[in-house]
Design a protein around this nucleic acid. Structure first.
Lengths: 117, 117
DNA sequence: CAGTATCCCAATAGATACTG
DNA sequence: CAGTATCTATTGGGATACTG
């Protein structure tokens, strides 16, 4: 039953663009990584691993590489031994915050669905 | 380089809730299906299949079942031969429109990234 | 410390055939 | 028309070992 109308802008940008955005932010790990970086602003590889319980070495490595490729975060390597690498968000990455906020709003609107988790 | 601050609400709802939302809307097909229903409001199974080029019978069937289970759309079956089934969005499904709008805004903010598609 | 490489198993999705 | 069942090819992700 349709009870509410709305304007959906997907067509203006094409499916491919939207799907690419979904790919960038979807997934169990990317969301967590991006969120941690909005919170702590700058984290080392090992710190990220500690803060994302359950993620494997391989997955963290792959996800970070993808996020870097998508220009959502930057990787800063310090040329020293032992190596030190820091990750932080780009402006583009920070731009996702309103999207996450909207996500939160929708969760609140349907909170009874999510209480049982 | 961090140049912009923002407040990220993920922690207020817990990762699980947000991940469940992502699961609900992510994926190559769900977004298309939901979008078509915001546009046409009510579509039969075969009409959906026509409007989502490339989707297989099996996938459309599975995705619709999941979307129905997540209460994003409703399935209305007419008891006749040959069978007729119509799909339309629920209020909860329509509630996703602002989320898609925010997605579109972010695409526009980074449009140079998405032009080459 | 911060990765990469390899192997292997489980889950996913496509094609096809069948049904009320 | 609108599905379900089955079989199979491909992929994704975990565990482990190795490297600068």
């Amino acid at each position: 039953m349709v009870t509410k109308r709305g304007v959906c802008p997907i067509e203006d940008y094409g499916y491919e663009a939207i799907e690419k955005v979904i790919d960038m932010i979807a997934g169990k790990w990317k969301l967590r990584i991006l969120y941690l970086l909005t919170k702590y602003e700058c984290l080392r590889y090992g710190e990220l691993k500690k803060h994302v319980p359950g993620i494997t070495h391989k997955m963290l490595s792959m996800q970070l590489k993808e996020l870097e490729k998508d220009k959502l975060l930057v990787r800063k390597e310090y040329p020293q031994v032992p190596p030190k690498v820091e990750y932080s968000l780009t402006v583009k990455g920070w731009g996702l915050v309103p999207l996450y906020e909207q996500l939160g709003i929708w969760v609140m609107e349907n909170r009874e669905e999510f209480m049982g988790l």
